Simulated scan of single mutants.
Amino acid sequence: MVGTKGAETSLRLAESMLELIQRHGYSGTGLNTVVEHAGAPKGSLYFHFPQGKEALGEKAVELAAARFGSLVADSARGSATPGEMLGHVIDELAGMLEDSRFQLGCPVSVVTLEMGAQSERLRDACANAFESWIAPVSELLIAHGRPRPVARALATAVVSMVEGAVIVSRAQQSTEPLHCAAQALAVLLEQGTEASA
């Protein structure tokens, strides 16, 4: 298929950018390091991302959003309740933190904190990423009997608390903050919900 090799190189570059942002932050990730990490030809970065680092950062944020979105969707399909879904998500995040020795965090929060005030393009990418996680959680809560405005507010709180818990877990080198957040949120999510018919 025409373009397959190019698409693979583009994806490798975005995946490398994503991993390096998780480890070193956006500002601490240089383009030469990304190219080297991806094992890509030097000229390929500007071929695939002619607008440079912001374009590559945007693609990495989109990739992170899609992966976490898939985790949420898969967890929702395999769960009877919103609290159970959240438990699956938290377990996956806790495993990721432990496996990386607390070196890998959420790249979306990293980019938001570092670049949200400096780059409208990256701020928009991060806002879209967070929305892509809030929306399905909201829909799940609606399916379990929550009114739409309440579901939206709760879903926003869930994503915000989980993001914060990942940061605190990294700082403390412990998954306890994540599990504490999961316990508190499970109580909140289960109150007043009804199993969908």
Rank of each mutant, 00 (worst) to 15 (best):
M161V: 11
A165T: 03
V61P: 00
R146V: 00
E8N: 14
Y46H: 09
A76Y: 05
Q173E: 15
S119P: 04
G105W: 04
S138T: 10
A143L: 13
P149S: 05
S169A: 15
I167E: 15
G6Y: 06
A181P: 01
L13D: 01
A66K: 13
S132I: 04
A165R: 01
E58H: 13
E92H: 12
E114C: 02
A60P: 00
S27F: 07
S174A: 14
G69D: 01
L45S: 11
R121Y: 02
L18R: 07
G145M: 07
A14W: 00
V110T: 15
T193L: 09
S196N: 11
G3W: 05
T175W: 01
L31K: 05
L113E: 08
M115T: 01
G52T: 05
R152M: 07
R12Y: 01
E131S: 10
A80G: 07
L154G: 12
S70E: 12
V166S: 03
S70L: 13
M115I: 01
L141E: 04
E98S: 11
A60Q: 00
G192E: 01
V2Q: 13
F47E: 14
Q191W: 13
P136L: 03
L113Y: 06
L185P: 00
M17V: 05
V72T: 03
V159Y: 06
E163K: 14
W133I: 08
F102Q: 04
C126S: 13
A165W: 00
K53M: 04
G25E: 01
S70G: 10
A171I: 07
I167Q: 08
C180Y: 11
T33L: 10
A155L: 04
S169K: 03
V35H: 02
V61T: 01
A186K: 10
M1Q: 07
C106E: 05
G95E: 14
A135W: 12
T33A: 13
R170G: 07
P149H: 02
E194V: 11
T156V: 14
G57V: 02
D99E: 14
G69R: 02
L178N: 03
A64Q: 04
C180E: 09
V168C: 12
L18A: 15
L141H: 04
L140A: 08
E139C: 15
T156F: 15
V110I: 11
A7W: 12
L63A: 09
E8A: 11
Q183W: 12
A65E: 02
A117E: 11
V111D: 00
E194H: 12
L188T: 14
E15F: 02
M161H: 14
G25F: 00
V34L: 00
H37F: 10
L188G: 06
Y26M: 02
E19L: 08
R12C: 03
L18F: 08
G30K: 03
M1W: 13
L97M: 07
L31D: 02
V108Y: 00
S44I: 02
G145W: 12
